[in-house]
Amino acid sequence: MKNVWTIFKRELFSYFNHPIAYAVIVVFLLLSMIFAFTLGGFMEVQDASLTYSFFAYLPFVLMVLVPAVGMRLLAEEHRSGTIELLGTMPISMGSVIFGKFLAAATIWLVALLLTFPIWITVNWFGDPDNLTIISGYLGGFLVACCFLAITLLVSAFTRDQVICLIVAATICIGIVLGTFDPFVRAYSKALPAGVSDAIRSLGVWDHYMSLARGAFRLQDAVWFGSIILACLLGTSTILTAKRA
């Protein structure tokens, strides 16, 4: 655990020394606000909640931006050769990956928290259920973590940051769009009803939107937890196997 903390500190420090964290946070804030005020109709809907005006659009922003934050975590170590330093220190590959994952997740925590003006606004104009909003933020953070873990898994296969970005973003876009309700309805017309239900509950929306609506269900925690854990363990296994 101490090793995870050591790696986490270094990685977080490195993020704030690079323009990429700032760039991604600024773009994220811009896009999420644009979605909320245009498509989400934040000012028009007369609804004092953020569920459908703000949270519903987060996965669309995260599916592209999260891989941009995660792509350098391992690629940079390989490019500069510092992976050899880490690999010869008495630290397990698992703690290296977990520490890096936590550092990138912290970037997303910061980015999500920086959307606080919209929370202030909705409290100013109305009387929203703030617990639902907290639950929505938790959902957004879990989606970011989930995409981050997928990015790490992809980056275990390639040393190229651009390839990692493209492949990871494609997977995340596939997960988001492929299980987006209107799309599922369109392409599952010919399929039996059970199949489209299965697709929906496999995808990110079912689990994320239930959190955004303020319902915390065990199945959502299991869904997010198992994807994150499986991807991180996979990353560690692949990196170890690749050296053999």
């Binding site: 050591t6 270094r10 420090f13 490195s14 050769g81 510092t82 050899e84 880490l86 220190m89 630290i91």
Partner: peptide, 25 residues
């Protein structure tokens, strides 16, 4: 161990890098 071509974290200062390595040790 000193690896070939002396890899380092370029974004750190010398002392911060050494502190990080010491902690990792």
């Amino acid at each position: 161990y000193l690896p070939e071509s002396a890899p380092l974290y370029n974004d750190m200062t010398v002392i911060a890098f050494l502190r990080f390595c010491a902690e990792a040790r």
